[in-house]
Computed example of a mutant assay.
Amino acid sequence: MKFVLVAVYYNNKEIPVEEFPMPEIGEEEVLLKVMASGICGSDVLEWYRLPKAPRVLGHEATGVIEQIGKKVVSNLKVGDRVFVSHHVPCNACVYCKKGHHTACETLHNTNYFPGGFSQYIKVPKINVQLGIYKLPDALTFEEGTFIEPLACVARGQRLVNIQKDDTVLIIGSGISGILHVQLAKFKGAKKVIVADINSYRMSIAVKFGADYAFNSDDSLPQKIKALNEGRLADRVIVCTGATSAVTLSTACIEKGGTILFFAVPEPSVKIPLPLNQFWRNEITIQTSYGAAPNDLEEALAVLATKKLDVKNMITHRLPLREAQEGFRLMTNNGESLKIIIEPNNPNL
Rank of each mutant, 00 (worst) to 15 (best):
T140H: 00
K97E: 08
K2H: 15
L308K: 10
E142N: 12
Q324A: 01
K122E: 05
L303C: 13
N347V: 02
V88N: 12
D309S: 13
V64F: 03
Y212I: 02
I132R: 12
A36T: 05
P274D: 15
K164L: 05
E148T: 06
F20T: 07
E229W: 14
E342R: 11
K71T: 01
V168T: 01
K311E: 13
T331L: 07
T167N: 02
A61L: 13
I15W: 02
R201M: 07
I224S: 02
V192K: 03
P114S: 06
I175W: 00
H86V: 14
N312W: 09
I175R: 08
K307W: 01
K207N: 07
S336T: 13
F20M: 12
L150R: 09
L57R: 08
L273M: 13
P51F: 07
G256T: 12
N281C: 00
L5T: 14
P149A: 06
W279Q: 14
L296G: 02
S216W: 07
L107T: 04
S37K: 05
V82H: 13
S336M: 00
G256H: 11
K33T: 05
Y112L: 10
N11L: 11
G326Y: 04
A103C: 09
V72W: 12
N127F: 02
V73E: 08
N12I: 09
K52V: 14
H180Q: 09
T315W: 11
C93Y: 13
L320K: 04
T102H: 06
Q157G: 05
T145F: 00
A195V: 05
N127S: 06
D211H: 15
H180P: 06
V73M: 01
E254I: 13
Q182D: 05
V34K: 04
L329W: 04
I121Q: 03
Q119F: 02
K134M: 01
D166F: 03
D218F: 03
P293S: 10
I126S: 01
V8R: 15
L76P: 06
I171Q: 06
F262E: 05
P89L: 05
G131D: 03
I224E: 04
T247R: 15
F278K: 14
T247W: 11
Q324G: 03
Q119G: 05
N276L: 10
M202H: 04
